[in-house]
Simulated scan of single mutants.
Amino acid sequence: MFDRVNLYRIAPFGAYVFFMLLEDMLLKFGWEANDLRLLYAVKITVVAGLLWAMRSAYSELRWPVGASFRTWTVAIVAGIVVFVAWINLTADWMVMGEPVGFDPREQDEIDWFLVAVRLMGAALIVPVMEELFWRSFLMRWIDHPNFLTVNPAHVGLKAFCITAVLFALAHSLWLAGLFAGIIYNLLYMRSGTLWSPILAHATTNAILGIWIVSTGNWGFW
Results as ranks from 00 to 15, higher is better:
M1E: 09
F2H: 01
F2D: 00
D3A: 06
V5S: 15
L7E: 05
L7I: 01
Y8P: 14
I10E: 06
P12I: 04
A15F: 03
A15Q: 07
F18N: 00
F18K: 04
F19R: 06
L21H: 07
L22P: 01
L22F: 07
E23P: 08
D24C: 13
M25V: 13
L27W: 00
L27K: 06
K28A: 13
K28N: 14
A33R: 12
A33W: 09
N34K: 15
D35K: 02
L38V: 12
L39S: 05
L39D: 02
L39K: 02
V42N: 09
I44Q: 13
I44E: 12
T45R: 09
A48W: 08
L50Q: 00
L51H: 13
W52I: 10
W52E: 05
A53H: 13
S59N: 15
E60D: 11
R62A: 05
P64N: 08
S68A: 07
F69V: 14
W72V: 04
W72F: 09
T73P: 03
I76L: 08
V77F: 00
V82C: 02
V84K: 09
V84M: 13
A85T: 10
A85R: 14
A85I: 13
I87G: 07
N88E: 02
L89H: 04
V95K: 01
M96F: 06
E98W: 11
E98S: 12
G101T: 01
G101F: 03
F102M: 06
F102R: 02
D103R: 06
P104V: 02
Q107L: 10
D108E: 11
E109N: 15
D111G: 02
W112H: 14
W112K: 09
A116C: 03
R118V: 04
L119D: 06
A123H: 07
L124C: 01
I125R: 08
I125P: 10
V126T: 11
V128L: 08
E130L: 00
E130P: 02
E130Q: 10
W134T: 03
L138G: 01
L138A: 05
L138Q: 08
I142P: 11
H144W: 11
P145S: 00
N146H: 13
T149E: 15
T149V: 07
V150K: 05
H154S: 12
H154Y: 12
V155E: 02
L157A: 04
F160H: 03
T163Q: 03
A164S: 05
A164T: 05
V165I: 09
L166M: 10
A168V: 06
A170G: 06
S172A: 08
L178K: 07
A180Y: 07
G181A: 05
I183W: 13
Y184M: 06
Y184T: 14
L187S: 01
L187K: 07
T193A: 00
L194E: 08
L194P: 11
W195S: 01
I198E: 11
L199D: 09
A200L: 11
H201K: 12
T203N: 00
T204N: 15
A206Q: 12
A206E: 15
A206S: 14
G209D: 09
W211G: 05
V213T: 12
S214H: 15
W218L: 00
W221V: 02
